[in-house]
């Protein structure tokens, strides 16, 4: 993957496929580090499946639907000296999956975040009936978007309406320009 924002798009597709009603994408940045957290309330995975998704050689045959996405993100993180963790629960009371990857931004093998705004609009365009909470903090500054809030305003107008997607794109770009002038 050329950009970490593409890994985020890829991993979040898993959350949607797991039937998540809300997926939280959280980016926490410092001058030296970036942490990506993707947390969903989807169906979750059994302990055995969680172990298997990390191993691309094991997963290719047995859980083909999971595939290379997780190993690619894990590699991107670990090649910068960062950490990767995945936890999941498929219990009926409390189910969902959490994926967290941290990165050392100064490392030569750090993949740039890239066009994260495009990732968010692509997710909403493709999955207008599920909710996303996106938060990107950089020290004290923050950019955020909660589709549940937008849905309240839009009522029965779908989130994948062209004008709405454009509004989201512009809104996020303006937030970035204001909060993180260097990004």
């Amino acid at each position: 993957m050329k950009e970490l924002s593409l890994n985020i798009l890829d991993i979040t597709e898993n959350s949607v496929k797991a039937g998540a009603s809300l997926t939280e994408i959280t980016l926490t940045e410092t001058p030296e580090t970036l942490t990506i957290t993707i947390k969903d309330d989807g169906c979750g995975m059994s302990e055995d499946t969680v172990k298997s998704v990390i191993d691309p050689f094991y997963t290719t045959r047995t859980t083909r639907k999971v595939g290379m996405g997780i190993p690619l993100l894990k590699l991107a993180s670990e090649q910068t000296g960062g950490n990767f963790e995945i936890s999941s629960s498929d219990s009926p009371e409390d189910h969902g999956t959490l994926v967290r990857a941290s990165f050392n931004k100064k490392h030569i093998d750090f993949t740039p975040l890239g066009d994260i705004v495009s990732t968010i609009t692509t997710l909403i365009q493709g999955h207008p009936d599920t909710d996303f909470l996106f938060t990107h903090t950089f020290g004290d500054a923050a950019v955020s978007l909660d589709t549940r809030e937008l849905r309240q305003v839009l009522e029965d107008v779908p989130l994948d309406t062209y004008e709405v997607i454009k509004w989201i794109e512009e809104n996020l770009k303006e937030q970035y320009a204001e909060a993180i002038p260097s990004v």
Binding site: M1, D10, E13, Y162, I165
Partner: peptide, 28 residues
């Protein structure tokens, strides 16, 4: 196609171009 293979190969800009052009041409 927006699986890992599609995304890695460049599906995101393709999708965005389609959405953009369909609207521009009034084909919504």
């Amino acid at each position: 196609g927006m699986a890992t293979c599609g995304i890695a190969a460049g599906a995101r800009p393709v999708l965005n171009a389609l959405v953009e052009e369909v609207n521009k041409e009034g084909l919504n």
